[in-house]
Simulated assay, not measured.
Amino acid sequence: MFSIGSLIVYSGTGVCRVEAVGPPPFDPGSKVEYYTLIPLQSTGTIYVPVDTKVFMRPILSREAAQELIRRIPEIQQAQLEHLDYRMLAQRYRSFLDSHSCEDLVQLIKTAYTKSTANTRSGKKPSKVDQDFQKRAEFLLHDELSAALDIPFDEVGDYITRQVEQMKQTG
């Protein structure tokens, strides 16, 4: 059970703060306890039963987030050649559904590489690649922003600086 104030990854929404645990305001007499979740990067409130089967986990620790960034150059892109759009979308969705930051990095690298290759060969980047890359970047940056306590819109530059610094120090 998560406590009030905890930061958690909630399904495909991203990082949410647990604002309350107890009966929901729409049913104050409920015997079922609910989490009241506030997404960090969007508006609204989510009410979810404490015993839900929907994916929830604590965000990465600061140390785990820094270790993930350190490992980004080592994370290999997936080999997804010769897949039609439907199969590619299904495979990308499986990366998102794992809720693993490493899988998000792998998806981002794969989609970016494919889009860059298409652009270089004069083709338009695939909408599937672009959409899934954008979603994976949002989810990854959302979690790293919370774990490292840095503004969401500075995460990309932070990652770039850290990776460059590691290259320079060998």
Rank of each mutant, 00 (worst) to 15 (best):
V18R: 01
S3D: 12
E19S: 09
L104Y: 15
I150D: 03
G122M: 01
A20R: 11
F138N: 01
E63N: 08
L88M: 12
R86C: 01
P73N: 03
R93A: 14
P28M: 12
L107I: 08
P28G: 08
A146H: 01
G5C: 06
Y158C: 03
L60P: 00
E102Q: 08
R91S: 15
D97H: 10
T45G: 00
P28C: 12
A117K: 13
D142H: 03
H82Q: 05
Y35D: 03
L68I: 04
E102H: 06
I72Y: 07
Q66R: 10
K109C: 10
D157I: 05
L139I: 07
P125E: 13
T119F: 15
G170S: 06
V155R: 00
I75R: 04
R57N: 09
P39W: 12
D51Q: 11
T113W: 13
Y34W: 07
S126E: 05
P24Q: 08
S121D: 14
L88G: 03
L37C: 02
L7T: 07
R91C: 10
G22M: 10
T52G: 04
K114R: 15
P49V: 10
V163E: 04
L88D: 04
T43S: 10
R120G: 03
D149F: 06
P39V: 12
E81S: 09
F152P: 00
R135Y: 09
S61N: 08
L139R: 09
L96M: 09
R93D: 08
V15S: 01
L60H: 02
P39E: 10
V105P: 03
Q130F: 07
E19D: 11
L139E: 02
C101S: 12
K53E: 15
Y158E: 05
E81V: 10
F2S: 03
P49D: 10
L107P: 08
P24N: 10
C101H: 07
V32M: 04
I38S: 12
E137V: 10
P125V: 13
D84F: 10
H141G: 00
I8R: 03
R70F: 15
L40Q: 07
A65Q: 02
V50G: 00
K123R: 15
K134C: 05
Q77F: 09
G5L: 12
S30M: 12
D27Q: 05
D131S: 14
S145K: 02
R161P: 00
S3M: 13
G14Y: 09
A64K: 03
Y85A: 13
K127S: 13
V18W: 04
A146F: 06
Y158M: 03
L107H: 13
S11L: 03
G12E: 13
L104H: 11
L88E: 05
R17D: 11
H82I: 01
T43C: 03
I75Y: 07
D97F: 11
E67G: 01
D27E: 10
P125F: 14
M1P: 04
P23R: 12
L140S: 03
T110P: 00
C101N: 14
L96G: 01
